[in-house]
Amino acid sequence: MGFIKENEKHIFETEASWSDASEHLLCLDTGDWRTERPVVDQDRCNGCGFCVLYCPPQCMLADGEYFKADLAYCKGCGVCVKECPKQAIKMIPEGEFADDSAIG
């Protein structure tokens, strides 16, 4: 359930804007709003998962025993940095990454 995108037009299958979150909730590439990205220092991280719980758009993904931001959606708000009890996450300016791509 959701919508079909035809050029600029969104054709909804229902009367209201019903959609399946698993397909469409993260449909906007909000990653390009970001000026800084969260980087997890795995030496400090104890895997508590606070960053996952607090991330507003829920885009902290599992990375083995640790976590990493889904850079297609992470807006760079920094809530994870603030909430991390081990100070294991740092915000690094986008300009410092070689790919120079906000989408990651």
Binding site: F3, H10, F12, S19, C27
Partner: peptide, 27 residues
Amino acid sequence: RPRLIPGQSIGCGSHGMGMGYVELRRR
């Protein structure tokens, strides 16, 4: 009608950006 079902990840009210909004208003 479509409806919210606990455990299913469907929702309503988002995706109103740009033409999506216009389309829904028109409907």
